[in-house]
Computed example of a mutant assay.
Amino acid sequence: MLKEFRDFIARGNVLDLAVAVIIGAAFGTIATSLTQDIIMPVVGAIFGGLDFSSHFVLLGPIPADYAGSPTDYAALKKAGVAVFGWGQFLTVVLNFVILAFIIFMLVRTANKMMRKADDAPAGPTEVELLAEIRDELKRR
């Protein structure tokens, strides 16, 4: 069983998948930072607030023992208050769209590179080379 497991792990596609997961996580982090640190502050400034992810609607009462700010989305959520966090949801959706666009551009570029490699004139085939060698030997 250990040998089978080692053979399974040593397959190229499993290693490729592991690399893809690690790179995907790194892209996710980059996309999150791009969204939260660059895009959403600009969008928030356009719509009147610097932290767009803190836009929400209260759906339930704030507990009497709550000591935090009634405008702090994270604290209200932590206190168990029912909130409709549309700003946070919009941030996550934008994160996804940015990440999907980055992946699309990578796949598109890779496909173009593969097409160029396929369109490049290939050298003579093995059979053609052998035929040339045979013909050259006949002439001598």
Rank of each mutant, 00 (worst) to 15 (best):
R6V: 15
D7L: 12
F8Q: 04
I9M: 14
I9A: 13
I9C: 10
I9L: 15
I9P: 01
A10L: 11
R11H: 07
G12L: 04
G12I: 07
G12S: 12
G12Y: 11
V14K: 11
L15Y: 05
D16H: 08
L17T: 11
A18K: 02
V19R: 04
V19K: 08
A20V: 07
A20L: 13
A20F: 14
I22L: 12
I22M: 10
I23T: 05
I23E: 03
I23Q: 03
A25G: 12
A26R: 00
G28R: 07
G28Q: 07
T29P: 00
I30N: 01
A31S: 15
A31G: 06
A31P: 01
T32H: 11
T32P: 00
S33Q: 04
S33R: 10
T35C: 06
T35G: 02
Q36A: 08
Q36C: 02
D37R: 08
D37E: 10
D37A: 07
I38P: 00
I39Y: 03
P41A: 02
P41E: 03
V42H: 02
V42I: 09
V42G: 00
V42Y: 02
V43T: 02
G44E: 05
A45K: 04
I46T: 06
I46M: 05
F47L: 10
F47T: 12
G49A: 10
F52H: 06
F52L: 10
F52Y: 14
S53K: 13
S53V: 02
S53Y: 07
S54Y: 01
F56I: 08
V57A: 11
L59A: 04
G60M: 06
I62Q: 05
I62R: 06
I62Y: 08
P63A: 13
P63W: 14
A64P: 00
A64I: 03
D65E: 15
Y66D: 10
Y66S: 05
A67H: 09
A67P: 00
A67F: 00
A67E: 12
G68R: 10
S69N: 15
P70S: 12
P70D: 14
D72R: 03
D72Y: 12
D72I: 07
A74H: 09
A74K: 13
L76S: 09
L76F: 09
L76I: 08
L76G: 07
K77Q: 14
K78V: 01
A79P: 01
G80S: 06
V81N: 09
V81F: 06
A82F: 11
A82T: 13
V83D: 03
V83H: 04
V83F: 03
V83R: 02
F84N: 13
F84I: 07
G85L: 01
G85K: 09
G85Q: 10
G85D: 13
G85I: 01
W86M: 02
G87D: 03
G87E: 06
G87I: 06
G87R: 05
F89V: 12
L90D: 02
L90E: 01
L90M: 12
V93T: 11
V93S: 04
V93D: 04
V93K: 03
L94V: 15
L94R: 09
N95Q: 14
F96D: 13
I98W: 07
I98H: 03
L99C: 04
A100W: 12
A100H: 05
A100Y: 13
F101A: 15
F101T: 15
I102N: 01
